[in-house]
Simulated scan of single mutants.
Amino acid sequence: MLFRPLFDQDTWTYTYLIADEFTQEAVLVDPVLEQVERDLKLMNELGLTLKFCLETHIHADHITGTGKLHDLTGCESAVPENAHATCANRFLKDREVLQVGGIEIEAIATPGHTDSHYAYLVNSDRVLTGDALLIRGCGRTDFQSGDAGTLYDSVTQRLFILPDETLVYPAHDYRGHSVSTIGEEKRWNPRFAGRTRAGFIELMGKLNLPDPKKMMEAVPANELCGKVLATALR
Score class of each variant (00 low, 15 high):
Ala88Ile: 12
Asn89Lys: 10
Phe91Pro: 02
Lys93Tyr: 10
Asp94Trp: 13
Asp94Arg: 09
Arg95Leu: 15
Glu96Asn: 00
Val97Asn: 06
Leu98Asn: 00
Gln99Tyr: 08
Val100Asp: 03
Gly101Thr: 07
Gly101Glu: 02
Gly101Trp: 05
Gly102Arg: 10
Gly102Tyr: 13
Ile103Thr: 12
Ile103Asn: 05
Glu104Ser: 14
Ala107Ile: 00
Ala107Met: 04
Ala107Glu: 01
Ala107Thr: 01
Ala109Val: 07
Thr110Phe: 07
Pro111Val: 07
Gly112Asp: 05
His113Lys: 07
His113Phe: 15
His113Ser: 15
Thr114Arg: 07
Asp115Gln: 06
Asp115Gly: 08
Asp115Asn: 11
Ser116Asn: 14
His117Ser: 10
His117Ala: 08
Tyr118Ser: 12
Ala119Glu: 00
Ala119Gly: 04
Tyr120Leu: 07
Asn123Phe: 04
Asp125Lys: 02
Arg126Pro: 00
Val127Gly: 03
Leu128Gln: 04
Thr129Val: 13
Gly130Asn: 02
Asp131Asn: 06
Leu133Arg: 08
Ile135Pro: 00
Arg136Ser: 03
Arg136Ile: 00
Cys138Thr: 12
Thr141Ile: 03
Phe143Ile: 12
Phe143Cys: 12
Phe143Arg: 15
Gly146Lys: 00
Asp147Trp: 04
Thr150Ser: 11
Thr150Leu: 10
Thr150Gly: 06
Leu151His: 04
Leu151Ala: 12
Leu151Thr: 02
Leu151Lys: 09
Leu151Ile: 07
Tyr152Lys: 00
Ser154His: 06
Val155Gly: 07
Thr156Asp: 03
Gln157Val: 01
Gln157Tyr: 08
Arg158Gly: 10
Arg158Met: 09
Arg158Ala: 12
Leu159Glu: 00
Pro163Asn: 10
Pro163Ser: 12
Asp164Val: 04
Asp164Pro: 00
Glu165Val: 07
Glu165Ile: 09
Thr166Pro: 01
Thr166Arg: 11
Thr166Ser: 09
Leu167Thr: 11
Leu167Lys: 12
Tyr169Trp: 14
Tyr169Val: 04
Pro170Gln: 13
Pro170His: 15
Ala171Val: 01
Ala171Trp: 02
His172Asp: 01
His172Lys: 06
His172Cys: 00
Asp173Ser: 15
Tyr174His: 15
Tyr174Ile: 13
Arg175Val: 15
Arg175Ile: 12
Arg175Glu: 15
Gly176Asn: 01
Gly176Asp: 05
Gly176Thr: 05
His177Phe: 15
His177Glu: 10
Ser178Leu: 06
Val179Ile: 11
Ser180Glu: 13
Ser180Pro: 05
Thr181Leu: 05
Ile182Val: 15
Ile182Gln: 06
Gly183His: 10
Gly183Thr: 12
Glu184Met: 14
Lys186Asp: 05
Lys186Glu: 07
